[in-house]
Amino acid sequence: MWRKKNAWLVLIGLAISIKIFSLFPDAVEKYYASGIYPVISKLQRILFGWLPFSVGDIFYGLVIIWLLYKLYHTTRRIVKRQTNKKYWLHALLQTAFVVVVVYVSFNLLWGLNYNRRGVAYQLGLKVERYSKNDLVQLMQTIVYRLHALDSPSRVNRQALARKRNLFDGAVSAYGQLAHNETKFTYSFQSVKPSLYSYLGNYLGYTGYYNPFSGEAQVNTTVPLFVQPFTTCHEIGHQLGYAKENEANFAGYLSAKSSQDALFRYSVYFDLYSYSRYYLYAQDSITAKQLDAQLPAGIKADHRVLREFVKKYRNPVEVIIDKLYGEYLKANEQPGGKLSYNEVVAWLVAYYKKFGTEAI
């Protein structure tokens, strides 16, 4: 009884301390994101990165099995009328204990990165509201890049169907970026195919980061031209860029630094879609004019992606999307799923500082 009480006191004390600490972004950036977290993440990658399978995925699978068992056990007791006030109080305390443990573990291992100053602060970018002209200028530059990359990106595209080439290519891209920006140095590789890739097609995810194992997982069953940017995005999470727009921007900076044309194509392909979402809402005519300027190969890839998404669309995906959007909102991303698209603001700020040739 005394041990349980002490455990509760320690956990609650840690949870309160984490919450208070998270209110000070400068402190989080200096002491956690740039101090404690890099050590934690490297240790995780050293421990699990060498394994050919995802430890985090196995952990998630075991958690789901445990939850299903608990649900079955509780349902059975209810049916047999074996529950009482004491049982439900004990169950409530157990659940609360698990929730607090997960909250503390999640934040100490990675989650506090949601409260850091972030990549715009590190690069000295002035991220602000942008105009339609800014957006059009950005998209014109992206269209220009896609024209240049359309043919080269198809020469040896199938080579990235081999997962090792894909993952090594992403690590190499970060290596190229780190020559000029050492803050993006990525050591001790830990990028793996998701054990639940096919399930991901129905749930609508292309990749995810596991904060409990430090592994980046990629859905390797989605169209090949999507995978390079997804891989770079997930490595961005490993480097401590928790918010989706920031992980997208880290993924962009690395993928565009790659010597592989398909990596560069992959990032500009996605960025065009993100930018188009906002332009179409303001000026659908201009958006369609830019669409018409895209090479035939890129239009074909867009059709392939649309058909892929359509093939796996289902009611469960809508629910998962909604839940994930709420998760993002609870973690300093009020835009929910649109947080991914918000990388556009970073891109505009980037070209305003370094010029459109830097895009």
Rank of each mutant, 00 (worst) to 15 (best):
M1Y: 12
K4A: 12
K4W: 11
V10I: 15
S17Q: 04
K19T: 15
I20C: 08
L23S: 10
K30P: 00
S34T: 08
Y37K: 08
P38M: 06
V39S: 11
L43F: 12
Q44R: 02
V55P: 01
G56N: 02
D57H: 08
Y60F: 09
Y60E: 03
L62K: 08
V63A: 12
I64P: 00
I65P: 02
T74Y: 05
R77A: 11
V79H: 07
N84C: 07
K86R: 15
Y87P: 07
W88V: 14
A96L: 14
F97S: 08
V98P: 01
V99C: 10
V100P: 05
V101G: 08
G111Q: 03
L112Y: 03
Y114R: 06
R117M: 15
R117D: 11
G118R: 06
A120C: 07
L125Y: 03
V127A: 03
D134S: 11
V136C: 06
I142S: 04
L146F: 04
H147A: 08
S151E: 13
V155M: 03
V155R: 09
R157I: 10
R157F: 03
N165R: 10
N165T: 10
G169C: 07
A178E: 13
H179D: 11
E181K: 12
Y186A: 04
S194L: 12
Y198A: 05
N201Q: 10
G207L: 08
P211Q: 11
G214C: 10
A216G: 05
T221M: 14
V222F: 06
P223S: 12
F225C: 02
F225Q: 09
F225Y: 07
V226Q: 11
Q227I: 13
F229S: 13
C232A: 15
C232F: 04
K243Q: 09
N245Y: 07
N245S: 14
E246W: 02
E246M: 03
A247D: 01
F249R: 00
Y252R: 00
S258F: 01
D260T: 05
A261H: 09
L262C: 03
L262W: 01
R264P: 00
R264V: 03
Y265Q: 02
S266W: 02
S266I: 02
Y268E: 03
S273E: 05
S273G: 00
S275W: 01
Y278H: 02
Q282C: 01
I285P: 00
T286V: 09
K288T: 14
L290N: 00
L294V: 12
P295V: 09
G297D: 00
I298E: 01
A300L: 13
A300H: 09
H302R: 14
V304T: 09
V304L: 08
K310R: 11
E317F: 06
D321N: 15
K322S: 15
L323D: 08
L323G: 08
Y324N: 13
G325K: 05
G325N: 04
Y327Q: 13
Y327F: 14
L328V: 13
Q333H: 11
P334L: 15
K337V: 15
S339V: 14
Y340R: 07
V343H: 03
A345P: 02
A345W: 13
K353Q: 09
T356G: 04
A358R: 12
A358D: 00
I359V: 15
